[in-house]
Simulated scan of single mutants.
Amino acid sequence: MPTLNEEEGIAECIDRIKNALVDIGVYGEIIVSDDSTDRTPEIAREMGAIVVNPDGKGYGYAYQYAFEHARGEFIAIGDADCTYDFEELPKLYDLVANGDADMAMGSRLEGKILPGSMPKLHQYVGNPLLTKFLNVFYGAGVSDAHSGMRVFTQDALATMDCETTGMEFASEMIMEAGARGLTIEEVPITYHARAGEAKLDSFRDGWRHVKFMLENAPGYLFSVPGFVLGTFGLLLMGLAFFHVSLGGFTPGAHSMMAGSLLTLVGYQIASMGVFATITTNPIRKPEDRVTTWITNNLRLEQGATLGTIIFGAGAAYGAVLFGQWASSGFSQLPLLMADVVALTAVVLGIQIVFGSFFLSAIAE
Rank of each mutant, 00 (worst) to 15 (best):
E163C: 01
A44N: 01
F322S: 09
L359A: 12
V52S: 00
L114A: 13
R289E: 08
G307A: 10
Y317G: 13
S331Y: 07
M337V: 13
G219R: 07
S33L: 08
S223V: 13
V347Q: 07
T164I: 02
M160E: 01
I30P: 02
D34Q: 06
A62R: 12
I50G: 00
D144L: 03
F203G: 01
A338K: 10
W293Y: 15
A44K: 02
V320Y: 14
A361I: 04
L92E: 05
V341Q: 11
Y317H: 12
V142W: 03
E46D: 14
I24L: 12
D15W: 07
K199N: 03
T153V: 09
E110Y: 06
G355L: 08
F74L: 15
L130V: 04
T37M: 10
T277R: 10
T291I: 09
I75T: 11
T40K: 09
T295A: 13
D205S: 10
T183D: 09
P286Y: 08
E110F: 01
D15F: 09
G166K: 13
V51G: 03
G99E: 04
E29F: 00
A177R: 07
V347T: 09
E163P: 00
V125P: 03
E197M: 14
S327V: 03
R289P: 00
L182H: 05
V22M: 11
L92Q: 07
L261G: 09
A258L: 15
V96D: 01
I269F: 10
G248Y: 06
L109E: 05
E176M: 13
V151P: 03
G148F: 04
A313H: 03
A179P: 04
G25F: 07
A316P: 01
D205V: 05
A193W: 00
G58N: 05
A49L: 07
E186L: 10
V32R: 04
L359D: 00
G99I: 07
Y124C: 02
T291C: 10
V51T: 02
T305F: 14
G323L: 13
L264E: 04
A313E: 10
M173C: 12
E8C: 09
C162F: 03
L134C: 08
E176A: 14
